[in-house]
């Protein structure tokens, strides 16, 4: 059992006061390891809240540097951080909020070759990437390694998120199957995004991570939570594990990690898809 210092008791008092979290829950948080993929719109608010919550080890991976166009929504990066690596910028703010925790930074781009080594040992992965190849790669690697994770996406005024417990609940491929063709994908850069929805979605993902670690409540599994900020309508679409899922179904065709750019290329030469 951890002997909380006076300062820790005060810092985490609002967690300890919660019946469902309490002293035990806060201990679990301090011993937990969460990896955040992407230090952008979703990763920033998630990183700040997880740091504030006292998640003991937080890994954060991103190969980009901060640009002025990021500042409208990537809330851990400040004007002074332009041209600084995103993970260094985020880590600085996380440690400033809570020096209690350990932040591991990875200035890297996740790919089939390095993902297993990076995510192994984490208790939970929070996907805040901007691209589908990485989203599918995170899903596949987490399913192979049995690591629970939160999927998140935002576009314009909309957001979506789901939590996956590998082997038990629907995975991202159960519902989305394969990445969309790259030329069909609008990015934030092309489509635009209302800054605050990054915070709305990233903090939902952070809450799921905290719930998973502490065992509080019911996770957002077998359901895709979507919202449209123009009307503030939230919907939870029921999903289920698909027996035909190529990854976690009964006869999986995906048996090893591949970078999805490749499979998109393969798709293009597939006469059925062409």
């Amino acid at each position: 059992m951890i002997d909380f210092t006076e300062e820790q008791l005060e810092r985490y008092s609002r967690h300890i006061l919660l019946d469902d979290v309490g002293v035990d829950g806060q201990e679990k948080l301090l011993q937990a390891k969460v990896l955040i993929v992407g230090a952008g719109g979703l990763g920033c608010p998630a990183a700040l809240y997880l740091a504030a919550a006292g998640v003991g080890t937080i890994g954060i991976i991103d190969s980009d540097i901060v640009e002025i166009s990021n500042l409208q929504r990537q809330i851990a990066h400040f004007t002074k951080d332009i041209n600084v690596s995103k993970v260094d910028s985020a880590a600085e703010k996380m440690q400033a909020i809570n020096p209690d925790i350990t932040v591991k930074t990875y200035k890297d781009y996740l790919c089939a070759e390095n993902i297993t080594k990076i995510i192994e040992g984490y208790d939970f992965v929070l996907d805040g990437t901007d691209n589908f190849p990485t989203k599918f790669l995170v899903n596949d690697a987490c399913v192979f390694l049995g690591i629970p994770f939160s999927h998140g996406g935002i576009l314009r005024f909309n957001g979506q998120t789901m939590t996956v417990i590998p082997g038990q609940t629907a995975c991202y491929r159960c519902s989305f199957r394969t990445p969309p063709p790259p030329d069909a994908v609008p990015s934030c850069a092309q489509a635009g995004v209302l800054g605050a929805i990054a915070g709305m979605l990233g903090t939902i993902q952070a809450a799921e991570a905290l719930k998973y670690i502490t065992g509080v409540g019911e996770l957002l599994t077998n359901g895709l939570l979507t919202f449209d900020a123009r009307t503030m309508a939230f919907r939870k679409i029921n999903l289920k594990r698909q027996v035909k899922c190529p990854l976690c179904g009964d006869n999986p065709s995906i048996t090893r990690l591949v970078d999805a750019e490749q499979s998109v290329c393969e798709l293009k030469t597939d006469p059925v898809a062409a």
């Binding site: 059992m1 005060e10 300890i16 006061l17 309490g22 002293v23």
Partner: peptide
């Protein structure tokens, strides 16, 4: 309040 309750809960946890 609420630190008195926090300390009470910590005491109970042990």
């Amino acid at each position: 309040c609420p630190m008195n309750l926090v300390k009470t809960k910590v005491a109970f946890s042990k």
